Simulated scan of single mutants.
Amino acid sequence: MTTTLRVDTAGTRGQTAAFSLAGDLDLHTAPVLYPTVEDVLGSHPTVIMDLTGITFCDSSGLNALIRLRRRAQEAGGDLILVAPSQQMLRLLSITGAARIFTIHAGLPEAWNATPDPGTPPTP
Rank of each mutant, 00 (worst) to 15 (best):
M1G: 05
M1V: 07
M1D: 03
T2N: 12
T2P: 07
T2Q: 10
T4C: 00
L5E: 02
L5Y: 05
L5C: 01
V7L: 01
V7A: 01
T9W: 07
G11A: 02
G11E: 09
G11K: 08
R13D: 03
G14K: 12
Q15T: 14
Q15G: 15
Q15K: 15
A17P: 05
A17N: 08
A18S: 14
A18W: 13
F19Q: 05
F19C: 00
S20T: 10
D24Y: 11
L25W: 10
D26F: 00
L27G: 06
H28W: 00
H28P: 00
P31L: 04
V32K: 08
V32F: 05
V32G: 00
Y34R: 08
Y34N: 02
Y34S: 04
T36E: 05
V37G: 05
E38N: 02
V40Q: 06
L41G: 06
L41P: 11
L41F: 06
L41H: 01
G42Q: 07
G42W: 07
H44F: 13
P45Q: 04
V47P: 07
V47R: 10
I48P: 04
I48Q: 05
I48R: 06
D50P: 09
L51Q: 12
L51K: 09
L51T: 02
T52L: 10
T52R: 14
T52W: 04
T52G: 10
G53P: 09
F56G: 06
C57Y: 05
C57V: 08
D58H: 10
S60Y: 08
G61F: 09
L62V: 13
N63Q: 06
A64K: 14
A64W: 12
L65Y: 01
R67P: 00
R67S: 01
L68T: 13
L68F: 07
R69V: 08
R70Q: 13
R70P: 03
R71T: 04
R71E: 00
R71L: 00
R71N: 02
A72H: 02
E74L: 02
E74I: 02
A75E: 07
G77I: 08
D78A: 13
D78I: 11
L79N: 03
L79Y: 11
I80W: 10
L81I: 07
A83M: 04
P84H: 08
S85A: 11
M88H: 13
M88P: 00
L89Y: 03
L89N: 15
R90H: 13
R90T: 15
L91N: 10
S93T: 08
S93F: 03
T95M: 00
T95N: 05
T95A: 04
G96E: 07
A97G: 07
A97T: 12
A98W: 07
I100K: 09
F101C: 03
T102A: 13
I103A: 02
I103P: 01
A105Y: 04
G106H: 14
E109L: 10
E109H: 09
W111P: 06
W111V: 06
A113M: 13
P115V: 15
D116A: 15
D116C: 14
D116F: 11
P117L: 04
P117W: 09
P117C: 03
P120L: 14
P120N: 14
P121V: 13
P121G: 13
P121K: 14
T122K: 11
T122A: 10
P123L: 15
P123M: 15
